[in-house]
């Protein structure tokens, strides 16, 4: 299985394309191009969302329409992506501007408000079998109510914004919860093996055991 990373120019959000035998799974449809995906895959079987924030879901509608595949996420995420307030698309330009200190360049923001929906949702855990691989989706709320982590074949972790290199998750966004992060997400992360490769929602991949966060893994 190959993992391809696409990163958006604004806020450096990562989309991942898992490819096996010319079939694909897209995690967080926010970057890349239809032609870029088509060059790798003949078809896409699932779109998975690690959480509901607009910078991770902005391409959901376009890719679902193109590939006629289901969108799968947690139940909380499925509810919140239907609201431009809860998926933050209504705030996206303002947030990007105050975060970068510069106006958002023209052409980067295609819409002011964005809505989408899930085709399948789950609570707790959900197991997928795909092209000989196992995917375990687990709710890890804290960064947002709808956050999940996706563990592929037991050693590849697609963490969304639940875990970024050198950082614990930001839990101060509206809807975030430090208490939930410490009670649910952290125990999940702490239980993972050191050789787990983490593909985060922003920036590059890293090995969990080499991560600064090992300080809180004890």
């Amino acid at each position: 299985m190959k993992v391809q990373q696409f990163t958006t120019p604004l806020l450096a959000s990562n989309m991942y394309l898992l490819e096996e035998d010319r079939r694909g799974i897209i995690i967080d449809p926010c970057g890349g191009s239809l032609s870029g995906i088509a060059a790798v895959c003949e078809g896409v079987d699932y779109i998975l969302l690690t959480h509901e924030h607009y910078d991770h879901i902005s391409g959901t509608n376009a890719l679902r329409e193109r590939y006629d595949c289901p969108v799968l996420c947690s139940e909380a995420c499925g509810q919140r992506i239907q609201s431009s307030t809860h998926n933050f698309s209504r705030y996206y330009e303002a947030y990007a501007t105050v975060q970068t200190g510069e106006p958002v360049p023209e052409g980067i923001l295609p819409v002011e408000e964005y809505f989408t929906h899930a085709d399948e949702v789950f609570s707790g855990e959900h197991q997928l079998s795909w092209q000989g691989h196992s995917l375990l989706l687990t709710e890890t709320p804290g960064h947002s109510p709808g956050s999940i982590c996706i563990l592929v074949d037991g050693n590849l972790l697609f963490s969304g914004d639940t875990l970024l290199q050198g950082e614990v998750a930001v839990t101060r966004f509206p809807g975030g919860s430090r208490r939930q992060y410490e009670q649910v997400a952290l125990p999940y992360l702490r239980a993972l093996p050191d050789d787990t490769i983490v593909y985060p929602g922003h920036y590059g991949a890293f090995r969990l055991g080499e991560h600064k966060i090992k300080n809180w893994r004890k």
């Binding site: 307030t85 705030y91 303002a94 501007t97 930001v170 966004f173 509206p174």
Partner: peptide, 26 residues
């Protein structure tokens, strides 16, 4: 900071049942 700013805006919108324009948030 930028994250706290969004917390504040959401809290004010909730408290007063309003929706800020993007320029006003900035």
């Amino acid at each position: 900071d930028s994250v706290g700013h969004m917390q504040l805006i959401a809290a004010l919108e909730d408290a007063f049942d309003i929706m800020f324009d993007t320029d006003d948030i900035i």
